[in-house]
């Protein structure tokens, strides 16, 4: 199999679009169901995220007046493409893509693209609420990226290489634990869940930064969010869960770990109320900063 084919398969089939989309819908359904059950409600039916996306695909697209059509329509596509490409790099068992030196840098860059798209989507839409959401998203990304990046970079420091496969082969140690905690600290804000759901405050600023999106572009944003959830949970599992020599067992362990992480994050989201932007920013720069410093120190002490 040539390299081009392996990339195509990785992006389109496994672990890309064809498998990640249903997995993302499953995880989104799990989160929504868990929130509902924690609130004593029945919750959505199993196929709900799928129905949401299919319905949006069948709807009309309303483009606001005075908006640049090209950018407006390209943003969801770019967001989806970046997330899928990022997922294709993650060395899940059976991923056909060869590991490149420095693919962590590429991964971290691709993971920033959807955030960038959200910010741009807010500003492009010319809606005042969308602009507020975009501003919040931009500022928040400056905050949560500190622990998030440090968690990955610390692991790269331990491995001595910016390569995903090298990261997996690092012998398990205390740095894993510290870095995992730091990663988990950043996870709720990355997933835009409750204490840090500041950018998508649904009743405060009406909706998130895709307030002016409708129909298929909105469906692509929803799909991109679903795959981003898969990406974040599987990245956590791949980097911080020790691998066994058997790939199928690894896969099951990774999926279960992803669901467990989501369950914990959802529990936190249900139990807390939304913070203000300044509070979240301060939280991430003080506590996230302390956690990052400890993690980096642990890599040096070892």
């Amino acid at each position: 199999m040539s390299a081009v084919w392996s990339y195509l398969v990785a992006i389109a089939v496994w672990p890309g679009l064809l498998f990640a989309a249903p997995l993302g819908w499953l995880e989104l359904w799990f989160m929504r169901k868990l929130v509902a059950r924690l609130q004593g409600r029945q919750g959505p039916p199993f196929f709900q995220p799928f129905f949401d996306v299919m319905k949006l695909l069948g709807k009309e697209t309303v483009i606001p007046k005075g908006v640049n059509r090209g950018i407006f329509l390209a943003l969801p596509l770019v967001s989806l493409a970046a997330v899928t490409a990022a997922l294709a790099i993650v060395p899940l068992p059976g991923n056909p893509v060869p590991s490149l030196p420095g693919d962590i840098v590429l991964l971290l860059y691709l993971m920033e693209v959807p955030v960038l798209c959200e910010v741009l989507a807010g500003y492009v839409s010319r809606s005042i609420y969308g602009q507020v959401a975009a501003m919040r998203e931009a500022i928040l990304s400056l905050a949560y990226n500190l622990p998030f990046l440090v968690a990955i970079i610390a692991m790269a420091q331990v491995a001595g290489s910016f390569q995903m496969r090298a990261l997996q082969e690092v012998p398990y140690g205390p740095v894993h634990l510290l870095a995992a905690l730091t990663f988990l600290l950043a996870l709720p804000a990355r997933m835009k869940l409750n204490p840090f759901s500041i950018a998508n405050a649904e009743h405060e600023i009406i909706a998130d930064s895709h307030i002016e999106y409708s129909g298929p572009p909105l469906a692509l944003f929803k799909l991109s969010h679903a795959i981003e959830v898969v990406l974040l949970t599987e990245l956590f599992a791949v980097v911080f869960i020790p691998a066994t020599p058997w790939p199928p067992v690894n896969l099951v362990v990774y999926l279960v770990a992803g669901i467990l992480v989501l369950g914990g994050v959802t529990l936190l989201a249900t139990a807390t109320a939304r913070l203000r932007l300044t509070q979240a920013f301060r939280f991430y720069w003080i506590w996230g900063g302390i956690a990052s410093a400890i993690t980096m120190a642990a890599t040096l002490v070892r």
Partner: peptide, 22 residues
């Protein structure tokens, strides 16, 4: 939206913007 009636069991979501609504 409360536990008793729970519109989400029918897939109903309350959205603030008319652009997302059916």
């Amino acid at each position: 939206l409360s536990p008793r009636y729970d519109a989400e069991q029918l897939g109903i979501e309350l959205h603030g913007t008319p652009k997302h609504a059916d």
